[in-house]
Design a protein around this nucleic acid. Structure first.
Length: 174
DNA sequence: GCCAACGTTGGC
DNA sequence: GCCAACGTTGGC
């Protein structure tokens, strides 16, 4: 199916919370997802992400690393202005206005999960085995996520701080 | 701080 | 096109 006409797809984006966190996104409401400097991730944003696609936000290099919320693609990819800005940490001297090289979509805040879902728990959850995030050597900062995996992960995040074991205890105790 | 894994660069 | 060197990512 052509990407332009397909139903919304699901994605996961990584961000270091010290650089830009889910709270920053909640405050800004919308942001250009700038600073991605990997061709594969750029191609996904440019060629495959569509307005309306749902995006899990993941905190990498965090303690603990965790899935923390949801965003949605709100504008299609444009040239990443930070590549042309010498003051930006993401400045790329090989980029130019005529050949910007790097691109980014705009993401809008949807929700902060009721609780962060730590990587260890993601790894231990049945049904998430195929999540690209868990594959060995996977470093892409923009990753496709299957609809089934997306649903499982969102459910964990909305579980309000209760682990499955805690919920089971609560059920047993009435 | 360590290190595995991967991506990029550049000489040849 | 090969591949070694280097840089980056990111969990631990």
């Amino acid at each position: 199916m052509p990407a332009a006409t397909r139903p919304p797809a699901c994605w996961l984006v990584k961000t270091e919370p010290e650089t830009y966190s889910i709270d920053d996104l909640a405050r800004d409401r919308r942001t250009w997802w700038e600073g991605v400097r990997n061709y594969q991730a750029r191609n996904l944003m440019r060629d495959s992400m569509r307005v309306g696609d749902e995006v899990i936000v993941y905190h990498s290099n965090a303690d603990p690393p965790a899935a923390v919320g949801l965003a949605r693609v709100s504008r299609p990819a444009v040239a990443d202005a930070t590549a042309l800005d010498p003051r930006s940490a993401s400045f790329d001297p090989t980029a130019s206005a005529a050949r910007p090289i790097w691109m980014c979509v705009e993401l809008e805040f949807v929700e902060r999960f009721a609780r962060a879902v730590p990587l260890a728990e993601i790894r231990a959850t049945a049904g998430l085995e195929r999540l690209p995030l868990l594959q060995k050597g996977q470093r892409l900062s923009v990753q496709p996520v299957g609809g089934r995996e997306f649903a499982v992960l969102v459910r964990l995040g909305r579980a309000g701080g209760k682990t499955p074991a805690a919920r089971a205890r609560k059920v047993r105790s009435g």
